[in-house]
Design a binder for these strands. Structure first.
Length: 572
RNA sequence: CCGCCCGUAGCUCAACCGGAUAGAGCACCGGCCUUCUAAGCCGGGGGUUAGGGGUUCGAGUCCCUUCGGGCGGGCCA
């Protein structure tokens, strides 16, 4: 399978302890564990290996000796020296030396560094995939109210949520994507009233127009379609308008269906698909809300005051108690939220991650408190949350605030139409969700290395172009990688080797932006190599080895771009 | 007043559960295409990591505090 793999002579018991450790990092960890066991059998330590920033510090470094210094009450450098002397022989290891305050710097053999190329070509699309994880995880994201077009903030939620799902799947989880529609609250009443008024010819500048009515032009579209008795298909149902402006319920039904269809189209254009759509109205219709309220009352965490029913959320970490049933008899929004999450738990999701805008962060404590009050065996930190900060759209250095269609915000559809799906997805996911995001339209449209999307895609297109000229050279299996060894090649191999751990880390940290950053670094390493070393060399052995490396880079770009939901074009 | 997020080069951002001399890109200056895609590469200048304390062998990273920005704190969602 891999001709450059030497016959490694590492001890049998290490092989047993690290059955999967065929990458250099795990291998080194095994060697260190062996040395530690012989040095201090009773001491266990978290063996950390990291890639030093500086090349002169070797390929991997560990702070193990410094960590042990306190426990063993000895000088770190002396501990390091003894650890080195106890390391088993390994043909992967070219050297190990003490540096600084007690670091051990490891240098790998060239064969150990380049073998990742063979691993990648053998794994293909499975390169970077983690082992299957137990349990099922549900990710709820977007969950926009069906009261208007999706805006940039929803776009960020869609991009982050969907990339998170793809990351979790690659990391080995069984993922369900869910969208929750608040189709039962006051905002829907407001929508209904706005459409009804428009259907009767009332405009937002009329004194009769309600203060909080929806003013966007899309309301005109809905009203016009209703009067024209159109039929809209949303998800699983078809709704036909009866065209009667006096029929409030008909308007409500039609308007919600119409806007759900609009949102579905936007999400489809954005490349986001959901497995399950849940409706708030269904929670009321089949009694799940009432059942949750009864359960909370039965558990004794509620009380009546000022004509309202309260939940004692302060018993579960909230800073004040919350009203469940208002004086007018209706429930506050967090009651269906609790009922909804109880339902998620009963559906068997051991993990639930809610991706939302940070402006909703106050619901986190409330929902968790409500679930704890139910005493249903739900873990304290369940569900998990990923909260993204605000997005500001900028063009020509100035903030863009208004979309004609939506009236008060920039829509996701506007962005996709202007800068394209790939750039929109990349930019919305490339920053930590914790940070506010400036979406620069000029940058997203620019065609230079200012624009990381094209920079990464260009690397893929370049490789594809070269490989097209030698379709079979350096293909998977049996390639001799020994000719590889230039500085740029080894740097590239090291970068490729980071990929599986990066995916694992990004998934567990809920941080899809790390994938975006990695791909930019990988593309940079490739472009640097491409300009330094010629791929289509006359020397057959060298050419074949280099094309194998190029294939490995391309495979990693493809796998990584797939996590972001960004395309990998063959030509540009 | 309270809670959450953020503060790193002129600008936009990195820095792998505390590691060695804090890195890229843009902008600025200077180079590289009669050979694989110049949407590319190479080199140069640019920093008290907002300020101040603390924890320790070691802090951009953890704790406290001050300042600044954003978002919340409805019987709205």
């Amino acid at each position: 399978m891999c001709p450059v793999t030497p016959g490694f002579a590492f001890p049998h018991f290490i092989a047993l302890r690290h059955p999967m450790s065929n990458d250099p990092k795990s291998h080194l960890a095994g060697l260190l564990q062996h040395a530690l066991t012989r040095l201090a059998p009773d001491v266990s330590a978290d063996i950390q290996l990291e890639r030093p920033r500086q090349a002169s510090h070797g390929d991997f470094a560990t702070n193990l000796a410094m960590q042990l210094a306190r426990v063993l009450k000895d000088n770190p450098r002396q501990i390091a020296e003894r650890l080195i002397s106890l390391l088993p022989a390994s043909e992967w290891l070219a050297g190990a030396e003490i540096a600084g305050a007690g670091f051990i710097n490891f240098t790998l053999t060239t064969a150990a560094k380049t073998r990742v190329v063979a691993d990648i070509l053998a794994a293909g699309t499975a390169w970077g995939r983690g082992s299957a994880k137990p349990g099922r995880v549900q990710v709820e994201f977007v969950s926009a109210n069906p009261t208007g077009p999706l805006h940039v903030g929803h776009g960020r939620g869609a991009a982050v949520g969907d990339c998170l799902c793809r990351l979790l799947e690659v990391a080995g989880w069984d993922v369900t994507r869910e969208f929750y529609y608040n189709d039962a609250g006051a905002q829907i009443d407001n929508l209904t009233r706005s459409v009804q008024l428009r259907a009767r010819g009332v405009t937002p500048d009329d004194p009769a127009w309600p203060e909080d009515g929806y003013r966007g032009d899309y309301i005109i579209d809905v009203a016009r379609a209703f009067l024209a008795r159109e039929t809209v298909a949303a998800d699983d149902q078809h709704v036909t308008a009866n065209g009667d402006p006096a029929d409030t319920e008909a308007i409500r039904h039609f308007a919600v269906a119409y806007l759900r269809r609009e949102q579905d189209q936007d999400l489809k254009a954005f490349g986001v698909k959901f497995d399950v759509f849940s409706l708030e109205s269904a929670l009321y219709a089949d009694g799940r809300v009432e059942a949750a309220v009864r359960a909370l009352v039965d558990k004794g965490h509620t009380y009546e005051q000022d004509g309202a029913l309260w939940l004692r959320t302060t018993a579960f970490g909230d800073d004040k108690d919350r009203v469940m049933r208002k004086q007018d008899g209706g429930y506050t929004y967090f009651v269906p939220d609790v009922a909804y999450h109880l339902d998620k738990w009963r559906r068997g999701f051991t993990r639930v991650i809610n991706e939302q805008g940070a402006d909703h962060h106050s619901t986190v404590t409330r929902v968790r408190a409500g679930l704890q009050a139910l005493d249903a065996g739900i873990p304290v930190g369940w569900p998990e949350y990923v909260l993204h900060q605000m997005v500001m759209v900028v063009r020509n250095g100035e903030e863009v605030k208004i979309s004609k269609r939506a009236g008060s915000y920039v829509t996701l559809r506007d962005l996709i139409e202007e800068v394209g799906r790939d750039a929109t997805r990349y930019f919305l996911v490339a920053r930590s969700p914790d940070s506010q995001l400036v979406f620069d339209i000029d940058l997203a449209l620019s065609r230079s290395n200012e624009n990381p999307v094209y920079y990464i895609q260009y690397a893929h297109a370049r490789i594809s172009s070269v490989l097209q000229q030698c379709p079979d050279d350096g293909d998977a299996g049996g390639v001799d990688l020994a000719p590889l060894g230039s500085e740029k090649e080894l740097a590239l191999c090291a970068r490729l080797g980071e990929y599986p751990a990066l995916v694992e880390n990004a998934a567990s940290e809920h941080a899809p932006h790390l994938v975006a950053g990695y791909l930019k670094d990988l593309a940079a390493d490739f472009h640097a190599w491409y300009n330094a070393d010629r791929l289509l060399e006359d020397d057959a052995a060298l050419r074949t080895a280099r094309l194998a490396l190029a294939r490995a880079v391309r495979q990693t770009l493809v796998n990584g771009l797939d996590i972001l939901g960004v395309s990998a074009p063959e030509t540009m």
